[in-house]
Design a protein around this nucleic acid. Structure first.
Lengths: 348, 348
DNA sequence: CTGTTAGCGCCTTCAC
DNA sequence: GTGAAGGCGCTAACAG
């Protein structure tokens, strides 16, 4: 029994053992129809005896100039990325396309350290899909420098890279109008505004300085929605979470709901956040939507369970669209579709 | 502005533009301390001007004989894999180790098609981590043939590959004894028995034919537990789910709970299943644990929410242990720890 | 500190 | 249907 660390078997060795040229052995793997049955079986027998597992992937990549692998850049805190059901659907959509095309899928975690750029550039992939990040994220330049096709999901829009996203501002305005209808003191529970992920509570924050484009567009939409129902943005309380997390949203909501100026409508940025807010409302003895109108985002399982009004979008389709675009030469952008789902958490 | 499809810039071109030898340029990237400040900056300036993004990963892999990438083999139905919170924690554990070691992480989805083996063997990775699968899964041989270090999580145990797992039989026996204590008609809601994932309901199924080792060991443990409390295995109803899914468990549990021989204790194989069972019990007007004792597995968030007695194990640690072992020359196996968490879903 | 040599394993090109 | 040459881009090993 040979040790696991046995020396690598090469195609040349197989060819020699089979009594054919290296090219015949190579054709056996890459263009089998070009090889006679006789030669092919000799090669395969020799390969079996030597324990040859097929052409070396790195050598093949070098020679061919492509790796048949797509890189997926996920933000910091990978555990969050995998736990987030939206991200999971998104990854599944990418995987669908990769499988179809015989591509592998390399996860490239961002750590926030300075070596992120180097790690991106040292990864053997033909293209990139980038999970939504901030305008100032240095990995965007790192990806650009590789000159490989790349697509950003959600945002930011970057010159030379594709973009797949819904119109977050329009969707936020639409769901915000439903959330805030008839409300006197609307509030928002928001995703973080910048990569330092500071948790704050303020009235009507300036939107144009926000570095996460998805958050920025949604806040702009909520602002329009508030104004649509006659409430100036400066009177809208915005609680910023450090993460997309039900527990944190619950804590912030508990704070808001116990204040003198208790909100009577809250628009969240995810169904998980809305679920946390619903718990805080129940704990405070408030009835939804009578005492508090509430909206989520994503139309995940918890949204239908809780009867949340929310924004539906297909992360799986968007993941697939990103992968598709990243496989092409000239990644094209795409505006994905969304829809408003009205349920019992808001006034009819 | 050059098009994204611009020809690749090579280290040789950078060296020439910088007026140094190729090796000096190479050292600039790989052993910067070996190069004079002067030369280094010349190289970096030239690289910047030419848009050189660093050494080509494929060429480097070929030359070095390693890829700095770990392959993670996930079973069919990737969307389930990403959505399963246990799998998510496991992946996060792998990612932790990969980041520490400057490794990438390639996801290798199994499709069930015959090209699975070829895709595994064509992936440019230094080692494999294999998510629990069945004894007869052909990918196990494919991985063996690559002669690269590989570790299986959960099982099966394969010659030459490492194994990281808890003692599922012992854990099942321990939690089963608590679930079945004082019960007259214990039942089990099980993971699938074979890769065809047939959903069935039978009394005391033969355990030794089961192809998923994790399922097999747990059923063996539940069998011992039943016998420990004086109930023969042939009297224990076992409902087999096709997937690890709360909804499916709920449906099967509803069937069991509406039968004449209504179970008064159910041991599940995951907390998600137990959550589904709890819903079915509530729908049937049954009180837990008075009318029905219930146990889960994994100690996930839902277990503490519902007050489930369950088996705790750290998937993140196990993922990290797998990755660690797969990075080594001689992957060593490891028995992971588990513990019993007693809560209100069982009798004290 | 810098440079020269010699391939890593494979497959495109071209010949037979 | 088969084979010989050459080089993909890079870096270990060895000079200078």
């Amino acid at each position: 029994m040979k040790p696991a660390s046995a020396k690598r078997v090469t195609l040349a060795q197989v060819a020699q053992a089979a009594g054919v040229s290296v090219m015949t052995a190579s054709y056996t793997y890459n263009q089998p129809s070009r090889v006679s049955d006789d030669a092919r079986s000799k090669v395969l027998v020799a390969a079996g005896q030597l324990g040859y597992a097929g052409p070396d992937p790195s050598a093949r990549s070098l020679r061919r100039g492509s790796t048949s692998t797509l890189g997926v850049v996920l933000g910091e805190h990978l555990s969050y990325a995998f736990q987030d059901p939206q991200a999971a659907s998104f990854l599944a959509g990418i995987a669908d396309v990769c499988v179809d095309h015989g591509f592998g899928m390399t996860i490239l975690p961002i750590t926030g350290a300075t070596d992120d750029a180097a790690r991106i550039q040292a990864s053997a992939v033909d293209g990139f899909v980038i999970w939504t990040t901030s305008d100032d994220d240095p990995i965007l330049k790192a990806v650009q420098t590789t000159r490989r096709p790349a697509v950003v999901h959600g945002g930011p829009a970057v010159h030379g890279l594709g973009l797949v996203s819904i119109d977050n501002q329009a969707a936020a305005r639409a769901v915000g109008v439903v959330a805030f209808a008839g409300a006197a003191r609307p509030a928002v529970i928001s995703f973080p505004l910048s990569r330092d992920r500071i948790s704050t509570i303020t009235y009507g924050p300036e939107t144009k300085d926000i570095l996460f484009p998805v958050t920025r567009e949604r806040l702009k939409g909520y602002r329009q929605a508030a104004e649509d129902v006659g409430i100036p943005w400066k009177d809208v309380l915005v609680a910023v979470c450090a993460r997309n997390d039900a527990d944190e949203a619950q804590r912030l909501a508990a704070t808001l709901l116990s204040s003198r100026e208790r909100p009577d409508a809250i628009a969240a940025m995810s169904d998980e956040q809305a679920a946390g807010i619903a718990r805080a409302a129940r704990a405070a003895g408030l009835v939804i939507p009578d005492d508090l109108a509430l909206t989520g985002w994503d139309d995940s399982a918890v949204a239908s369970q809780l009867g949340l009004t929310t924004v539906a979008q297909s992360m799986r389709e968007q993941g697939a669209a990103c992968a598709q675009a990243a496989l092409g030469q000239e990644p094209h952008s795409r505006v994905a579709s969304w829809s408003l789902i009205r349920r019992a958490s808001t006034h009819p």
